[in-house]
Simulated scan of single mutants.
Amino acid sequence: MFIRTLLWGTNITLGNFTTIEDDVIIGDNTCIGNNVTILSGTRIGANCQIHSNVILGGIPQDLKYRNEYTLLEIGDDNMIREFVTINKGTASKMKTVIGNSNLIMSNAHIGHDCTIGNNCVIGFSVGMAGEVQVGDWSNISGLTAVHQFSIIGEHTMISGLSRVVKDVPPYIIVAHDPLQYLGLNLVGLKRRGFDSKKLEELKAIYRILFQEKRNTKFALQLIENEFEQTIERDKVLDFIRHSKRGIVKGYRE
């Protein structure tokens, strides 16, 4: 097996008492704080900030792991705060992937084979089990626990202290226990440039899905028949139809 040696970009800042193993790549202008541990198989992009006591590329906390060669890939412009731990992949997907321009707050844990998109916020002390998928522009608030294999759609907001055991469709806010739909993520969507017409379309789609208490299969067919085809409509339909574990609940009685 071919193992890369340590490859450095330019203008890298390295703190005191930091350990970096072989087979690590670090991009330009990345700043690494004190007492950081970066283990073999880790790839870090450019312009990242890795704060003190972070551990990257740790061995997966999965009993199926058999020391196979896997990776942790971290994109550009990420900020990873104190005491974050991110494990590398297993034979399942061979790598854990963190996209670009994410903020991962202190004490968060991201397990093996997870995929985090771009422009996400992972709140403090979020615990994310293995093989979770998180879409772009998602915001997972502090002290949330995310069950393995969960899928979180893009532009979502998950309130703090939540327990995610079902898939979360795109564009919405969810909260409570059990987790339930509370409405559109209006603040986030407006910040991303969604206009009033698009917001009304999404409100109407989710009203049929969650508020009118229809069978999910029938609701999806109704949405497909009654709404003009758009990127957003199709993302909602595709997400729910491909969910293997089911989606969050609608409004509580």
Rank of each mutant, 00 (worst) to 15 (best):
L14W: 01
G15C: 05
N16C: 07
F17S: 09
T18P: 06
T19N: 13
T19H: 13
T19S: 09
E21G: 12
D23A: 14
V24W: 04
V24E: 07
I25N: 04
D28C: 11
T30F: 10
G33F: 01
N35L: 03
V36G: 04
V36F: 01
I38Y: 03
S40N: 12
S40A: 11
S40T: 10
G41E: 04
T42H: 10
G45E: 01
S52R: 06
L56C: 03
G57V: 00
G58L: 02
I59G: 03
L63Q: 09
L63E: 10
L63S: 09
R66I: 11
R66W: 01
R66G: 14
R66L: 14
R66D: 13
N67T: 08
L72C: 08
L72D: 04
N78H: 08
N78D: 02
I80Q: 00
R81E: 01
F83T: 13
F83R: 06
V84I: 11
T85S: 14
T85Q: 10
I86W: 00
N87Q: 10
N87W: 00
N87D: 08
G89N: 02
G89D: 06
G89M: 07
G89Y: 00
T90I: 08
A91I: 13
V97E: 14
V97I: 15
I98M: 08
G99I: 00
G99D: 01
G99Y: 00
N100L: 10
N100G: 09
N102V: 08
L103D: 06
L103A: 08
L103R: 12
M105S: 03
S106W: 06
S106G: 15
N107T: 12
N107Y: 15
N107H: 14
A108P: 00
H109A: 05
H109F: 12
G111D: 05
H112M: 09
H112G: 02
C114L: 09
C114M: 03
T115I: 15
T115D: 06
T115M: 13
G117F: 01
G117E: 04
N118L: 07
N118W: 07
C120V: 12
C120A: 06
C120W: 03
C120Q: 06
V121C: 12
V121Y: 08
F124A: 15
F124Y: 15
F124N: 15
S125W: 07
G127W: 04
M128Y: 02
A129G: 06
Q133P: 00
V134F: 05
G135Q: 02
S138L: 00
S138C: 09
N139M: 10
I140W: 05
G142F: 11
A145M: 11
F149V: 06
F149K: 02
F149S: 05
I151K: 13
